[in-house]
Amino acid sequence: MRLCKRLFTLTAAAGAFALSQGTARAADATLDLVAPIADYKIFVSEEVDALVSDTTTFVEAIKSGDVEQAKALFAPTRMHYEAVEPIAELFSDLDVSIDSRADDYEQAEADPAFPGFHRVEYGLWEKNSTEGLGPVADKLLADVTELQGRIESLTFPPEVVVGGAGVLMEEVAATKISGEEDRYSHTDLWDIRGNVDGSQKIVELVEPLVNDPAFLEQVNGNFATVDTILAKYEEGDGYVTYDHLTESDRVTLSAAVNTLAEDLSTLRGKLGLD
């Protein structure tokens, strides 16, 4: 999913809201969001810094031909990307380059244009080899480093940040529940953890501004359901492969995630953002 790049500043946004309906409240809401969004920017910066640093180690493992080490680093590395996906997706050129899947290419895995994390995943798991992955890995590192640079100078659009909470759950509902995101490694539970962490962070930051206790109770209840299910599949510092998920847990997870996607789709509106 690509979000349009409306990179207006907070001040400009507040000005624009002053002209729309619900004037005072919207303007106040936007001003109220200054602190949460500053905090969110710190969260994103930390995640992206970790992404660059972990990708560096990941790429080193690939280039040294250490398949097992590269496999071990794949899921924890990309989790940082998953956590900040709504912001990362503001740069659609980089999102395609870093995180597109084989389905996005006419010749699927055989397509020479197939790049990024999933191209590496395909080589490591399907071919059990790092052969030919060197240039792909170099490009991946260059792309996440470029992303880091762009995010540093980005003014965060409030509606993208707040809307991002729902978008992250939409990500889970659309591509993770089916197990098709990480189809070679089956490390989808890590991705889900990343998406949910990112979404929970946003909710946590704006929660004091939401004057709807029943809504918050339901949202936090569904986050708790997701946490409980994920906790059942923890192994070491991460998770077992997705095929371990029971049908019953997959259904419960799907219901919680879809309900979060529905509920959080109203978060922007609840905060008076257009």
Binding site: N222, A255, A256, N258, T259
Partner: peptide
Amino acid sequence: VKTIPDQLV
């Protein structure tokens, strides 16, 4: 589907 996401998958 939209109205009852928490009970119907």
